[in-house]
């Protein structure tokens, strides 16, 4: 069943499409700045959805222009909420970008995997411990050499 292409379908699919694009960018992208931008797109979609929730067919913007009998107006409450949400969004983005600047100054990369790798290595180096390797990872080439006591301790086990 395919519904008719009404105005409401177009508006809703625009808003939710923006949210989906933003989420897809968050999931798919590995570059951290692109993930921030994806978050911005998703936020725009959410704001559009909020404004649509207060829309009326037969109404004007919620600003009084004549005394006496007032025409129907759209719901002002979602508009006020979106007004504050936009400003909060700007603050969050600025905070995220400033964190990214610091990360880039430190590691010279914004790729998520490389970043995590470098941070892991630095944390291990600062703490003076071995890198956090998986307990299940093979010790070396097969045939596996006998495990010495110090190797077990280095991997977090007790000898």
């Amino acid at each position: 069943m395919i519904p008719d292409l009404t105005l409401e379908l177009i508006l809703y699919s625009t808003a939710l499409g923006l949210v989906s694009i933003g989420l897809a960018g968050l999931v798919l992208s590995r570059h951290s700045f692109r993930r921030v931008l994806a978050l911005v797109i998703a936020e725009a979609g959410a704001n559009l959805m909020l404004v649509l929730a207060g829309y009326r067919w037969d109404a004007v913007a919620p600003i009084v222009t004549t005394l006496g009998k007032q025409p129907q107006m759209v719901d002002p409450v979602p508009q006020a909420m979106v007004l504050t949400a936009i400003v909060i969004g700007v603050g969050i983005q600025a905070l995220a970008v400033s964190i990214l600047i610091r990360i880039h100054q430190r590691y010279h990369t914004l790729d998520r995997n490389e970043m995590a790798e470098l941070m892991d290595a630095e944390i291990a180096a600062t703490a003076g411990t071995a890198r956090d390797v998986s307990q299940e990872s093979p010790l070396g080439e097969r045939p596996i050499p006998p495990i010495t006591g110090s190797a077990v301790q280095a991997r977090g086990g007790r000898s």
Partner: peptide, 30 residues
């Protein structure tokens, strides 16, 4: 994931009353 989430939200949203808000607070404030 993204496509499925978008489709789910859209199928919920399409059942909302568009253009006739059910919230009463807006009218009361006006």
């Amino acid at each position: 994931f993204a496509g499925g989430l978008g489709f789910m939200l859209l199928s919920i949203a399409i059942n909302l009353d568009f253009g006739t808000p059910t919230m009463l607070i807006g009218g009361a404030i006006q």
